[in-house]
Every structure is written in C-alpha cells, then in structure tokens.
Amino acid sequence: MPARSTKTPERFSLDRLATPIGIALLVTDAEGALRALDWDDYEHRMHELLRLHYGAVDLVDQSAPTEMKTTLSAYFEGDLGQLSRVAWRTAGTPFQQKVWSALAQIPVGATMSYGALAAKIGMPKAIRAVGHANGSNPISVVLPCHRLIGADGSLVKYGGGLERKRWLLRHEGVEI
C-alpha cells in the first residue's frame, strides 16, 4: 500500500477588502505576507491556485494586516505607488517565480507584451510559458499581471475578467 502524505495543510488567513471593482480576497500567512489576492466572484479559481501552489490549505477568516489593507485601499483611491509596499510571498516553480518577480518590475502606467517579458527574463522563445505562468499568478494587482498585453496592444486574458483589467489599466493612466 502506498504511503499517504501526512503533510500538515498550510494555514492562511482570509480577509475581504471592498474596492471600486469588487470585493478583493486577501490571503495572508502568519507573518502577514500576502499569499493571494483575487476577486470574490473568482474565489473557486483562487482556491485552485492555492491548492496547486501549496497543496492542502486551511483558510481561516481573519483580518489581514491593517497596514496592508490601508496600502491597498490607497492604491485603489489613486495613490498608485503603494503596491510596492505590500509584502508578498509565493510558492511556484523557479520559472514562475522569475516571471512573477519580473511582473513586479513593470512600472505603474506601463504595459508590456508577453514576448517582451519573455525576452526580459532571458527566454525570448518562452512566450507561451510566460503566459501560462502569468495565468497562475496568485497575487493579482500587486504582482501586476494586468499590465501584460498582446503584442498588438490588445487586452488579452485576465483572471479577474477583462473589465477589471481595463479598469486597472485606466486607473494607472494607460490609454486603451
């Protein structure tokens, strides 16, 4: 009989934050780092990403750190430089980590194509892999996957829906 995993589930806190584009779900760890940010109408997808990245997860309703909520609220109210102040931590493959770290370097008000991001991380032919990693990003907004666009400038794929992507980009001053 195969051995059964006895790994203790990861325990994270779940909180909610009202934003102009819906209720954001904030998943934090015991140290107060953001592990996931998604939207309440995409909660199932968030749970799936958490499972893929961490295995079994135990989510308990508990407030996120006040400073994190204040910082995120300030961003949504127009203080666009606030996102870099949010402490975050991710699990994922080394490649995903590389893509997500590169996302965090795209400046507010700028966009980048999937191909340009692939080139930036030194893997210019990995455009599809970059797209896949971007789609597996558990920390929406803070790791700004909304800033990735098609090579032709089109809005393509956003886990929170294209209307949210459009709003986020306009909020950051991007002409669409």
Rank of each mutant, 00 (worst) to 15 (best):
residue 176 I to A: 08
residue 150 G to A: 13
residue 132 H to G: 05
residue 122 G to D: 12
residue 80 L to Y: 06
residue 64 A to W: 01
residue 69 K to R: 15
residue 101 S to A: 11
residue 99 V to P: 04
residue 1 M to P: 02
residue 50 L to Y: 01
residue 81 G to M: 11
residue 13 S to F: 08
residue 143 L to N: 03
residue 123 M to I: 05
residue 50 L to I: 07
residue 63 S to N: 07
residue 43 E to C: 03
residue 94 P to C: 09
residue 176 I to W: 13
residue 141 V to P: 02
residue 63 S to E: 12
residue 118 A to S: 12
residue 101 S to W: 15
residue 93 T to W: 11
residue 16 R to W: 10
residue 158 Y to F: 15
residue 82 Q to W: 06
residue 64 A to T: 02
residue 96 Q to I: 00
residue 32 G to T: 02
residue 150 G to D: 11
residue 131 G to F: 08
residue 65 P to W: 13
residue 66 T to H: 11
residue 45 R to K: 15
residue 99 V to N: 07
residue 127 I to C: 13
residue 37 L to W: 00
residue 49 L to G: 00
residue 93 T to I: 05
residue 142 V to F: 13
residue 89 R to E: 02
residue 47 H to V: 15
residue 106 I to G: 01
residue 26 L to R: 11
residue 26 L to G: 07
residue 119 A to L: 05
residue 65 P to F: 10
residue 43 E to L: 06
residue 91 A to V: 03
residue 65 P to H: 00
residue 40 D to E: 14
residue 21 I to D: 00
residue 4 R to F: 06
residue 114 Y to M: 15
residue 110 A to V: 12
residue 10 E to H: 09
residue 163 E to K: 10
residue 9 P to A: 03
residue 46 M to F: 05
residue 131 G to E: 14
residue 47 H to F: 15
residue 7 K to C: 01
residue 25 L to R: 11
residue 17 L to D: 09
residue 102 A to E: 15
